[in-house]
Design a protein around this nucleic acid. Structure first.
Lengths: 234, 234
DNA sequence: AAGTGGTCTAGACCACACC
DNA sequence: GTGTGGTCTAGACCACTTC
């Protein structure tokens, strides 16, 4: 035991409730005592129990409904959290030297797929930015990005040969919502050349679409060089 | 606008603070007014401001330190959350029929890599379970799992031909912590046969190691059939 | 030493869902 | 209607950190 926080801290109560769930004192599907009763049991205010139970509900272990009460979840949906840093910081935090190279920057029509995902008409023109990131001199990531300049006009003046679009957007175009899709794909001829890897090598793909309210900001396809592993914790 | 919650709900304050951050009223690195002052501005209790700011800090947009105060984060580390359902439910929620097939169940020595990851001696024997999941009759997922029966003795009696190890463990062996690694790999000969796909096809791989306190429960390698996409939101 | 965020309390009212 | 969780308040004390 290392300083279990005061006996009546919400964290202590959180831990005790989690123990009862984990050790099946309260079985899946069972009702959990009401906040008032637990507050009485622990000798604390209801708000403190509420704080503990709110966190447990957020983590998916219990389900709460007004009037109906609280129950231990039958199928606890575990949530893993993934931290998405700026690529430069990601590479540097692994102790490698980061370098960045702009391949192309021009206005163009996105593919139908990209336009559809962004919810844009087919004839819209977007800023197309292609670039490579290197780690210790070796190709690490190929980035194929479309920027909706109507929403982020400042992107027109940005020098993406000096600052990566990734970093510029994080600093200048905050987003309110994003969709991320992870997948695997065999290297195309172009990707194989850019990442210095055999054709058909299995590559880890991240596609990210970010929004500001209801306006799409940018769609990016990140193609990682073979060997890349994305790590998360539950 | 749809019922923006009372003007002084923590959510309204949360939204207003987020707006000031997004629209750079408060620039990255800038100090944010103190809780007391914001409470005065909004005409609410400090606890309400605290609730709003706590959520913002959790999301990574501001950094808070006692005495030092609160600042807008310079490099907001975005966190994406991934929901990890039971495979059966994952498949069924996509409107497909789920089927499961046990391939092998036996005690064996895990590979050095797996043993090392689980922090176990090289001579330990674990329960090795290999299985396939089908979606609408087509191979969907190949699962290669090692179960530490010293920690989960009940697994010895479980009938993994009737219940998937995935589901059995979720219901019977709660874990406190898990490491998840995502990657891509070319299909091996065996994997290609089991997933009915060409050799060298790019496959999406999930490796998951779960712990109960400091005891490793299970290590599983999930190999998804081509075309699998994992979706998350930020 | 002092300022700031972190938390707890006791009480209250409200929203929602079930009856 | 009525019970349960969701939230707000006003005040208080505490923990951490910088000064």
């Amino acid at each position: 035991m290392t300083a279990p926080a005061d006996a009546n801290s919400w964290q202590a109560i959180h831990a005790e409730l989690m123990r009862r769930i984990a050790e099946r004192v309260w079985q899946p599907g069972d009702p959990v005592p009401h906040e008032v009763d637990l507050a009485a049991e622990f000798g604390c205010a209801r708000a403190t129990v509420n704080r503990a139970m709110r966190e447990i509900a957020q983590a998916g272990f219990i389900e709460r409904r007004r009037k109906a009460g609280t129950r231990v979840a039958l199928n606890p949906v575990r949530r893993a959290t993934l931290e998405i840093p700026i690529t430069r910081i990601d590479v540097e935090s692994r102790g490698m030297a980061w370098r960045y190279e702009l391949i192309e920057r021009q206005f163009a029509h996105p593919s139908q797929i990209v336009a559809a995902r962004m919810g844009l008409a087919a004839d819209v023109r977007l800023l197309h930015v292609r670039a490579r990131h290197f780690a210790d001199g070796k190709p690490h990531l190929y980035e194929d990005r479309w920027i909706h300049t109507a929403v982020v006009p400042g992107a027109l003046d940005a020098d993406f040969s000096a600052v990566s679009a990734n970093e510029w957007l994080v600093q200048n175009a905050p987003f309110t919502r994003g969709d991320v899709t992870l997948s695997a794909a065999n290297a195309s001829t172009i990707e194989a050349r850019l990442l210095n890897t055999p054709e058909n090598a299995a590559l880890f793909i991240v596609e990210r679409l970010t929004w500001h309210a209801f306006d799409p900001i940018t769609h990016v396809r990140l193609v990682y060089a073979p060997g890349y592993r994305m790590e998360m914790t539950i």
